[in-house]
Design a protein around this nucleic acid. Sequence first.
DNA 1: TACCAAATGATAATGATTGTCAAGTACAAA
DNA 2: TTTGTACTTGACAATCATTATCATTTGGTA
Lengths: 147, 147
Amino acid sequence: MDKKTKQKRVELFERQCRSQGVPFTVQRRAILETVLEFDNHPTAEQVHDAVTTRFPGISRTTVYRTLETLVQMGLITKACHPGSVVRYDRRIEVHHHLVCQRCEEVVDISDERLDALPVPDTSSLGFEVFDFRVQLRGICRRCRKKE
Amino acid sequence: MDKKTKQKRVELFERQCRSQGVPFTVQRRAILETVLEFDNHPTAEQVHDAVTTRFPGISRTTVYRTLETLVQMGLITKACHPGSVVRYDRRIEVHHHLVCQRCEEVVDISDERLDALPVPDTSSLGFEVFDFRVQLRGICRRCRKKE
DNA sequence: TACCAAATGATAATGATTGTCAAGTACAAA
DNA sequence: TTTGTACTTGACAATCATTATCATTTGGTA
Ligand SMILES: [Mn+2]
Ligand SMILES: [Mn+2]
Ligand SMILES: [Zn+2]
Ligand SMILES: [Zn+2]
């Protein structure tokens, strides 16, 4: 993610904090900046390790809490993942995922034809749809080589 | 899931066990039958609780192990989920999911237009695609009412 | 029926996440 | 700028989910 986009996101975060009366702390800022550095789908633990270099001694608890706050505020998302560890995603716009059924890795993919998906009407279910992700399930290169 | 479909799945499991030299144990059978009863996406713990009525004293460890085995053998799948608990899915055919961003519930949805998705060419990434799922992200009825 | 590789179950260990609460900080009001 | 206070943070413990270990049992086969 280029520096400009990153800065925009941090500024957006600050504005949202102000308008919602949420304190804009130095820890929260550091955590957001750190998660924006990852181009994959880090766990809270990985974010904690990484943010520690920028902010030594930051609490694991704070990282867990803040990541959840950032998701609630729409500044990052969670990547749906088959495994048992929560994974975060700096990408908030529509994009898609390759999900390896062997190693469970999730890799981003962009495809305009997938973006053009006709979203079905779910109003009869009472479900309001905001956006979507396509998960392509299969086997990644690394796992195929192992066989 | 109707009795017929369930029986077919169990028979398929038995055949695959025979051909792969995997013991077809009474525990494995009970676990498969139990997970096929769920019409949502149960956790291993939920499957354990349910299978206990059918097979008292069955070990939690065996349930965890067997569910993973069933996934590897293609008899059930994992439902990609934003939370930190693995969830299983008796549905193995292409279908799609509503994912509530508030309570993280995942609900099945079928839609022929979604099924007709044009799967992009991922060969340049070395990724071999078998099938796909669409996740519609939004807010479920229950969570909307709370607001 | 007897053998053996593999599964099971009891238990402990690990890993991830959440709850608690005293102490510190952001920020709005004075 | 100082002060008050609601909210956040960090240390720690507790909980929840999952995996490792290994003695015992069992399914499948000869
Ligand atoms: Mn992503
Ligand atoms: Mn499903
Ligand atoms: Zn893989
Ligand atoms: Zn909901």
